[in-house]
Amino acid sequence: MKKRLIFASVLAGLILTFGLGGNAMAAGESLGKCSVDDYVEKYGELGLTPENIAQEENINAIGEIFDSCIEAPSPIIPEINEVIWGGGAFVVLLALMLWKGFPAVQKIMNERSEKIATDLDEADKAKSEAQAVKSQYEAELADAKSAAAAVIEEARQQAEVLRSDLQQRAEAEIAEMKEQAAADIDTARERAMGDLQSEVSEIVVGAAERVVEANLDAEAQARLIENYINQVGSN
């Protein structure tokens, strides 16, 4: 709708300007009539005759007549009819513009302004929301960083506690192993000593048994019996 109004206004202005402007030019005085009239007037004043018309000064005089006749119009001041037609067209165009164009343009401008304002408001709103979201993200990021730092610190403390606990446990185990090893060594030594003593006693007693058995003949048996009888009887 707006485009059609603008197009109609422009078309009307072109028609009024160029179409009616052509009629104004046709209503002016022609170059031929001006020349004849000036020539007739000058011819009587100069006393031209068919005999002296070919003289040089007369030819120059005739040339001046024609030069004066074809004098150029003013480059600044327009023709009256052009002013009238142009002014009328301008007024009509101005009226059309004031009546339809300007309100339409104003409406478009207002709508555009409102749209831009709305867009700006929405942009501001979106910016505010984005800012809020950004702030929220930053806060969450800060919280996350803080939480991560807390987690890292807690993990570090737990690792430290675990390391300390493992170290203490390892030291305790080492001490226990040393103690156990010492006890095992003592036990092994005692066992070895016991075994050695047992073997020694076995060897000694075995040797003694063999010596005793070898010497336990009838005479020795009789002597042992006698000793037993005497010992029992002496009690």
Partner: peptide, 20 residues
């Protein structure tokens, strides 16, 4: 005992046991 006791040994042993 490993060997048997004579009657003399038995008598003296009996006496010794009675004494004990």
């Amino acid at each position: 005992s490993v060997v048997d006791l004579s009657s003399d040994q038995q008598q003296r042993l009996a006496a010794a046991l009675k004494s004990a």
